[in-house]
Design a protein around this nucleic acid. Sequence first.
DNA 1: CAATTACATAAACTTGAGTTTATATAAACG
DNA 2: CGTTTATATAAACTCAAGTTTATGTAATTG
Lengths: 117, 117
Amino acid sequence: MTLHDIYAIIAEPSRRRILDCLLRSDSTVKDLTEELGLSQPLVSSHLRLLRESGLVRVQSDAQRRIYSLDASPLTGVDEWLSAYRDKWNRHVDKLEEHLDRRKRLKEEKQADETTGE
Amino acid sequence: MTLHDIYAIIAEPSRRRILDCLLRSDSTVKDLTEELGLSQPLVSSHLRLLRESGLVRVQSDAQRRIYSLDASPLTGVDEWLSAYRDKWNRHVDKLEEHLDRRKRLKEEKQADETTGE
DNA sequence: CAATTACATAAACTTGAGTTTATATAAACG
DNA sequence: CGTTTATATAAACTCAAGTTTATGTAATTG
């Protein structure tokens, strides 16, 4: 589980928060420190890893570094997940079947009661 | 990044391999150790975490423990990813536009050459 | 040019995850 | 029963990730 692995990169909550920020808008390091309440060196070190994994790009503006998102390295995770997506969809389907069945039985019961009265 | 976090759980390569095995078929601990070439205590400890995170279920059969997959805890990851999926789709769209444009230009160029000869 | 702003990086520390080795438990088997 | 099979768990070790503190480096500003 080295940090060259995209799964380990997104396992860190602060890094996900950084990505979530960048998903909304490009940001400087200072923007991120203020928005997330993290120390500047910490944000910088996380950004370094995010850079190395290809998830963010930098652009210089005088002293500032403007970071922006590149989500494409996440496609691998998405592909891995897709195999499991089928599983839980089937599970949800079964749950819906179950609920539908319950609902139908309940409605039939109510119909019986009204006719009975 | 505690191990009670589903992202950290799936960050471990061996754990993902275990899940991939269970995606294909339910397995005993021994099955997994042989298929993955890991020590028995290691597999057991990973399975413990997978159990605690709700990703696997156990069923006893005499001395054996048959593990099976429950993918539903992964829905959260999937939902988080979905926000980014739009991003890279747009990126792919742009790439396709680019390639289409190249292809069109190339075809036009070839048409010019044939008429020119 | 001195002071400030924005950021990166190095050093040192802490903690916990992954792993191995050794041991406990519990069922099957002879 | 004693032994083997299947698994869990405890103890101990290693190493690297996350964090803080301190410092370096550009570019900006007064």
